[in-house]
Amino acid sequence: MPTNGETARQVRIKDLTLWQRTYIPEIVKGMVLTFKQILRPKFTRQYPEERWNPPSSFRGRPVLVEEEGVERCVACGLCARVCPALAIEVQGSETDLEKERYPIKFEINMLRCIFCGFCEEACPEEAIVMSDEYELVFTDPEKAIYGKDRLLMSADRLRPRLEFLRRAR
């Protein structure tokens, strides 16, 4: 805050010259800039016609890794426990498979998820990973709760991410 009234006063230049008042030099300067940009390469992406494929380090929506028709997940609940946004609900049950335990219910509320990737980091089975999908649109909050049907994704499809995780470890 200025304490002195003198320094606070704005000095306005009231009297422009005639040449300045035509604005022509300013317009010319602007147009030069515009035409320069026209000739340069474009950065704009024609989304959604032209999609962006994120690198494997990208954290898109979390998904469950599916191998040979079943999820790797053993319903240990560590992802749900670590999730800072309380987005995950897991309920376990018994299966005859060797892993003994599987998620009878696995839901992620995508309105809660903040894409932090903690779930991926906590999982002892590498069963939940951050996919490359970033297009999440819903018109109804109930539809934002993704069940197993929408969370399962094949390990093949997730190969780049799984390899990235191994490298990063």
Partner: peptide, 9 residues
């Protein structure tokens, strides 16, 4: 109770 819930839930 087997596998129904984790104790901390």
């Amino acid at each position: 109770f087997r596998f129904k819930a984790r104790v901390w839930e």
